[in-house]
Design a protein around this nucleic acid. Structure first.
Length: 479
RNA sequence: GUCCCCAUCGUCUAGCCCGGUUAGGACACCACCCUUUCACGGUGGGCACCGGGGUUCGAAUCCCCGUGGGGACGCCA
């Protein structure tokens, strides 16, 4: 009550401008627990917090919720750091970078929790029972048998907590049972540490998944008991699994950030896609540079309904980004992906040659992941010939005659450019009254063993006359 | 079971707040065009306001009830 009165007088004595100055800047936090995986839902929660901080010029805090001591390790922590770094989200306060409200790992904040617990104890808002410490709600008590949980519980005639949610509006929820804040093993529980840290770290906006909306009444009661200013809440919709019921869990296909790293997805494509899952700037804008997303992002524009994850749309977004990568970056991305896939023969090749092969393929591929397979025949003479394609190609016209003519032409053709090779083949086609296509299918089959690939002339040029003729000869011998 | 949240094409969504649109875009799908295979791209097509009541001259839009989906009900976070 005292704080309420203070606030009232404060507001009446000061002009709006003064109030603005007093109001600190936005402080948001991302508070993952190091379970060993970085979930796509966590990534989006982190992203929305980060975007809001960057949009408002606020502070993005990283706090590690590692009170579950059994499951912590440095390795798990690194998964979080690496994933955030990969996605391009830097934190202003937190582990590694420090800050005024540290430490930022809950496992190192025990004295702070003890101190806050004492405040509750002194105020008569906490008590011990069964070796644990419980938070005490205010109101008349009565014993009631809970059919669902099959036990007698103590209900408290409390008034509903009011949650002022930036996305959902006003939400009321009644918290009518005391709850544990310190386990009998002496460790504080999530609801307690979460609120204490949000107070101690001066968090102004709590942006988190909707699965926490029901918990928020507990948190509101705690904020009130501490007499602390209530942060703004923003509960964002959940990401549902693409097939079947329920929210996406770490066991679902595509749920882990590391999967996308392994597949060579571009982080900016994933970030763009994730930003659009549950938010959009209005209108038709989809592919946007991160600066644009930051400029347009705001909490009230976030949707209220859950979104189903669609890997096809993500793959498409990734392809669009891939297509427009500058040569140098594309080559280094391709190389990194080949290293992950241990494409030994490609990596053993001359870097300049690898570069040519990769750039020749850039406009054709849909993902980095398929690049090694797509270009395999560039790096070995021992490539497989697709039997189906062979049957199909060899069944039409007179492919053997065409191949012989092609080989003869190529033996003396100018290999200095794609167009030079193209002109030579077109001249041949004119002489025989056929088309480029009549030479392409069998030529491609003989030289690459398949019917898909980059432009034929580019492929010939990069491979070089010697290897092209040798491959044709080898093919003729077996066909 | 109780409580909380949500509801437009198969999917992500615009439109909803401040009622009047041929309900728009993207992914996926189909067809055609382009083309030197495969892609990219282009054009076109099919595909949606969950149901029922109200309010109103008029409802995707406002209200209520159903139904459906999701979440929370731990000494997990």
């Amino acid at each position: 009550m005292g704080t309420g009165c203070f606030l009232l007088t404060f507001l009446t004595r000061h002009k709006p401008q003064d109030f603005l100055i007093t109001m600190s800047q936005v402080r948001v936090r991302f508070a993952p627990s190091p379970t060993g995986f970085f979930h796509i839902g966590s990534a989006r929660t982190a992203l929305f917090n980060w975007l809001y901080a960057r949009h408002t010029g606020g502070v993005f805090v990283l706090r590690i919720e590692d009170t579950d001591q059994a499951r912590n390790s440095e390795e798990f922590l690194n998964v979080i750091y690496d994933s955030l770094a990969w996605l391009g989200m830097s934190w202003d306060e937190g582990p590694k970078v420090g800050g005024a409200c540290g430490p930022y790992r809950q496992s190192e904040r025990a004295p702070i929790y003890k101190e806050y617990l004492q405040k509750l104890l002194d105020a008569g808002r906490a008590y011990e029972k069964d070796g644990a410490i419980w938070f005490k709600l205010l109101g008349e008590r009565s014993e009631v048998f809970d059919d669902h949980r099959k036990k007698t519980v103590t209900k408290v005639a409390n008034t509903p907590a009011v949650i002022d949610d930036q996305i959902r509006g006003r939400v009321e929820r009644l918290e009518d049972e005391d709850f544990v804040i310190f386990r009998s093993d002496g460790n504080p529980v999530f609801h307690f540490v979460n609120v204490v840290d949000d107070i101690a770290m001066k968090i102004t906006h709590v942006i988190r998944g909707e699965d926490h909306l029901s918990n928020t009444s507990k948190h509101v009661e705690l904020f009130k008991a501490f007499g602390a200013p209530m942060p703004k809440f923003a509960h964002i919709p959940l990401i549902l699994k693409q097939n079947g019921p329920g929210k996406m869990s770490k066991r679902d296909q595509g749920a882990l950030i590391e999967e996308y790293q392994k597949k060579g997805y571009l982080p900016e494509a994933l970030v763009n896609f994730l930003s659009l899952l549950g938010w959009n700037p209005g209108g038709d804008r989809e592919k946007m540079p991160i600066e644009e997303i930051i400029r347009l992002f705001d909490l009230p524009a976030v949707n209220q309904s859950n979104a189903r994850f669609d890997d096809k749309k993500l793959a498409h977004m990734n392809m669009v980004y891939l297509l427009e990568q500058p040569a140098d970056r594309f080559v280094s991305l391709a190389r990194a992906q080949m290293e992950r896939q241990q494409a030994a023969s490609a990596l053993a090749a001359d870097p300049a040659y690898l570069r040519e092969v990769v750039l020749l393929s850039q406009p054709k591929i849909k993902s980095l992941e398929e690049l090694a397979t797509y270009t395999a025949y560039f790096f070995t003479e021992d490539f497989a010939v697709d039997a189906k394609v062979r049957d199909k190609v060899m069944a039409k016209g007179e492919p053997k005659a065409r191949l012989a003519e092609l080989a003869e032409t190529l033996a003396t053709a100018d290999f200095s450019s794609d167009t030079a090779i193209e002109e030579a083949i077109k001249a041949l086609a004119t002489r025989t009254a056929l088309s480029f296509g009549d030479y392409q299918s069998v030529g491609r089959l003989a030289v690459s063993g398949t019917n898909v690939g980059p432009s034929l002339t580019g492929m010939f040029r990069v491979l070089g006359r010697e290897r092209v003729l040798a491959r044709i000869a080898k093919f003729q011998a077996t066909a």
